[in-house]
Design a protein around this nucleic acid. Structure first.
Lengths: 190, 190
DNA sequence: TAAAGTTCTTATCCTATGTTAATTTTAATA
DNA sequence: TATTAAAATTAACATAGGATAAGAACTTTA
C-alpha cells in the first residue's frame, strides 16, 4: 500500500503546544482542503509529515501547479497578507501531520515589516510582490495556451506589447518568435 | 522613433544622493547588462525610467522570462542573498534611468531578518525560498519541453514522481494526463 | 475473493508549434 | 536619402500534444 492510498485517518485531537513555534498540530486525511480557492486564508501551515498540492480550477478541471513536502511552509500568501480571495486551493495529497498558526497570531510579523526603516520595508515588500507575479505567471503557463497568454498580455499589460520587441515577448510567452507572429495574425483576423 | 530605438546614450556622471533611499543613480543605454548570468550579483536596482528584461541562455538562444518597468525593484535575489552565481542575465531593453544600492549597504536588511524572533525570521526566509522555486519552475516552462521537464523532475525531485498521482504531476508539468502517459512510455523505451 | 470505482494506458484524429529558409518590413548608419 | 543591418512575417514540412473514447491495470470496499 503506497503512502497516498492509506485509509483516510479521522481527525485527531488538537495537540497544541503553547511554547512551540507553531501553535496548532493536527493529523488530516488525504484529500483534505486546507484553503479553498476564492476564500480568504486565515492560516499558514507547516508540514511535519505528508504531501500537499496547490491547484487552480480551470473550466471544471483542477490544474496542479505546486507541491509541498515535509518541513515546508504553505499558505496562500497574497490572500493571507492582503485579505483577498485565494487564487488557488491547497489540498493534502497524502495523510498529513500539520502545524499551523492563525493569521491574527502571525500578524505582528507582517506589521513589523512595515515598521522597519523605509528601505528594508520596501525591499521585503518587493519580494512579496515579485513572488506574486511569478506565481501568476506560472499559473498562466499551466492553464493557458500561448494564444491565451498573448491575449491576456494584450489586455492586462499592453505596455509590454508596446514597449518590448516581439522576439523577447515570444520567449516570455513560451513560444518562438515565428509562432508569436502567427498568433498575432490569427488574433488580428478574428 | 519608438522608445526602444532611441540612440544609445553615453553613461552620465554618477549623481549620488547620500540621503536618498537608493544611493546611486545613472542613465544607461538600451542593451546594457546589469547582472550577467553566472556572476554574483553585487547590486540591486530600482527603475526610475525605462524597461528591463531578465533572460536565460538556452543553447545559445536567449529566453526572456520577466520584464520590469518604472518603480520596480530588480536584482538576482538568490545570487544577491546567498553569493551564488546568478541564474539569469538582467539587461535593459530601453535606455534607463536607474538607482541602485550595493549589497554591502543593503546587508543590514538581510542580517536583520535573521535577527528577528525565530518565527518571523522563518516566515520571511520561507518567502524567499518559495520565490526561488517559483522562478525556477517558471524558467523551466520557458526553456524546456514537457518531456524535458519530466526528465528533470525524475532526476531532481524523484520523491514527487514516487508520491504523487500521475494526474497531478501531468498538470504540474503543463500537459494532460494522457500526454504524460505517452511521455513516460517514450522515455522508458529510450 | 469478487465487484465497483478509479486511475492509467493506448489508439485515432486533428491542430498548434517547432524548425528552417526565404521574403518583406522596419530601423540604424553613413 | 541611400545603404546596410536587424526584426518580423510567411511558407513548407515534421511532430508533439489536445480531445475523445475504449481498454487495461490498479485500489478500495464489501
Amino acid at each position: 500500500m503506497s503512502d497516498r492510498t492509506k485509509k483516510r485517518l479521522p481527525f485527531l485531537e488538537d495537540t497544541s503546544h503553547p511554547h512551540s513555534k507553531f501553535y496548532h498540530r493536527k493529523e488530516v486525511p488525504a484529500g483534505t482542503v486546507l484553503i479553498r480557492e476564492g476564500e480568504i486564508a486565515k492560516k499558514a501551515f507547516l508540514i511535519e509529515k505528508g504531501c500537499i498540492r496547490a491547484w487552480v480550477n480551470n473550466n471544471g478541471r483542477d490544474i496542479t501547479f505546486q507541491f509541498f513536502f515535509e518541513n515546508e511552509a504553505v499558505s496562500s500568501s497574497e490572500s493571507f497578507r492582503k485579505n483577498i480571495p485565494s487564487l488557488f486551493t491547497i489540498e493534502t495529497v497524502e495523510p498529513c501531520i500539520l502545524h499551523w498558526i492563525y493569521k491574527k497570531d502571525l500578524e505582528t510579523v507582517v506589521e513589523d515589516v512595515s515598521k522597519l526603516p523605509n528601505l528594508k520595508s520596501k525591499a521585503i515588500i518587493s519580494v512579496f510582490e515579485r513572488q506574486y507575479q511569478y506565481m501568476r505567471q506560472l499559473i498562466s503557463f499551466v492553464i493557458d495556451t500561448p494564444e491565451q497568454r498573448y491575449l491576456k498580455l494584450l489586455l492586462e499589460k499592453p505596455h509590454i506589447i508596446r514597449r518590448v520587441p516581439l522576439q523577447y515577448i515570444a520567449t516570455y510567452l513560451g513560444v518562438t518568435p515565428v509562432s508569436l507572429s502567427r498568433i498575432r495574425k490569427r488574433v488580428s483576423t478574428m
